[in-house]
Design a protein around this nucleic acid. Structure first.
Lengths: 143, 143
DNA sequence: AAGCTTATGTCAGAATCCTGACATGAGACA
DNA sequence: TGTCTCATGTCAGGATTCTGACATAAGCTT
């Protein structure tokens, strides 16, 4: 097939996998009435309740403005809740509603199935090495 | 449950690396007056001259409409050229102008430096394995 | 106490990208 | 030949995200 130079760059293959993963997640999450960024937001809140908008934005790799709009939608859908006033500073700690928690649990099963399918060619040791390599790549770029 | 921590998911680390890579490329390419998608487009044309808009879109992981707008900008900037009418079918084969080729060469040096920095912790054998793993992950999701 | 720094939430505007739709050109096939 | 299917380029509209900017709140330094 096409054996062009671009395919031998890690950055290009990275983008290719990420695009395929995003498409697979969008397809699956549509049945749960969630977008991929929304799912990431719910997952973060499920594991670390009380995160502020800015913290969520950093961990989801979007801007504060984008995450704020996303939280508005999730709040209107009744999946998350925020206090009207800040208990400390300006940060508004966000939490999942019972509806949001159940929606997350249902969606997570399907997303984990995608993750398993994606890494089906890798055993546990290879996956561990891959995670370490990805971590070193991210820190090499950010740090 | 620590096992289901987001950081232990390959998909999340993938997104993290991709975000860091995109930020690094945006910063570097700004000096060349190029965006990251525009650079990818020029790189594709540099290696496979005469690609159509639809082919470029597929290989750059964007829609035809987005790529078409991108080509309009690159054409206005004098970096690429397209014939006014299609020599066969409806596809308009696009090529780099001399200015586009030189711009690409200058930008490529900086982008390859980022690629090397990103994979600085990996030797040649590890990089080869990583590329193979990423390829298997993409095909497992798409196929 | 006063000023500086940092972080957060928010508003306004623009740029980017996408979904949906339509007409055109080429090849396949009855 | 006529029709069907597929791919391409393009238009219109909307959704998402970003950049830039501002005011507020807490911690720290002087």
């Amino acid at each position: 097939m096409r054996q062009e130079d671009l395919g031998r760059l890690v950055g290009y293959q990275l983008k290719r996998v990420q695009a395929a993963l995003r498409a697979a997640m969008d397809d699956t999450l549509r049945a749960h009435r969630l977008t991929t960024p929304q799912y990431v937001c719910l997952e973060l809140l499920g594991q670390r309740p009380g995160l502020s908008n800015a913290e969520l934005a950093r961990d989801a790799f979007v801007t504060r403005q984008s995450m704020n709009a996303m939280l508005q939608n999730l709040q209107d859908a009744g999946l998350v809740e925020r206090p009207a006033s800040a208990p400390h500073g300006r940060a508004l700690p966000t939490r999942l509603t019972p509806l949001g928690a159940s929606r997350l649990a249902a969606a997570r099963a399907d997303v984990l199935a995608i993750e398993r399918r994606m890494t089906s060619a890798l055993d546990e040791a290879q996956t561990r090495i891959l995670l370490a390599q990805l971590d070193s790549m991210a820190t090499a770029l950010s740090g």
